[in-house]
Design a protein around this nucleic acid. Sequence first.
DNA 1: CCCTGATTCGC
DNA 2: GCGAATCAGG
Length: 202
Amino acid sequence: MSWTDERVELLKKMWSEGQSASQIAKELGGVTRNAVIGKVHRLGLSNRTGGTGAAAAASAAAAPVAPVEKPKAPAPKEAVRPRPAPKPAEAAPETDQETVTVPSVSVSARNRIIPAGQPLPPQPSANEISPEALAKVSEIEKKAKKLTLMELTERTCKWPVGDPATDHFWFCGLPVQQGKPYCEAHVGVAFQPMSSRRDRRR
DNA sequence: CCCTGATTCGC
DNA sequence: GCGAATCAGG
């Protein structure tokens, strides 16, 4: 790849918006962040608007100023289906262009209205997931890194834990499975093969 | 470990 | 001019 006028313009634009070199490199494609940084220097446009790089990038991305185009195909259909997503706290920050799939969060309120001693009515989530997957989740949740929204990256599991309305809330934060927004355990409960849903009998 | 930008220097 | 390698730092 070479620095065509178009690419340079996009570079200038993104850089001035506070995007990080790696983000710009990703957007441009065919170049590394080093290449971007090198170009930035050669172009003489170094110091961006005040603030510390990362911080500036974060705010710039979070701000309503995010018209960056998303040419890529957004449809990872396939044979998996996201779970119903009752309680989104927030989507991941900025460039997360995946189809936002938010897992369910354990909500105390729901449990409260269920008569004690009664079998739980079929919940559209939990009890349809393989027991082992659930076990794995509760197990790794103890090891969760408990990240805040702002600490999430493309490599941290974005599975929310706890009730967003309370202090008992964080994001898993463990290493994600390649290409997925969640760690291995949470991918297990977030997606399920079409088959397992089809002839689900009881 | 993940990430950030800055600099150097062979190509 | 370019960018990988390296450096310095969070």
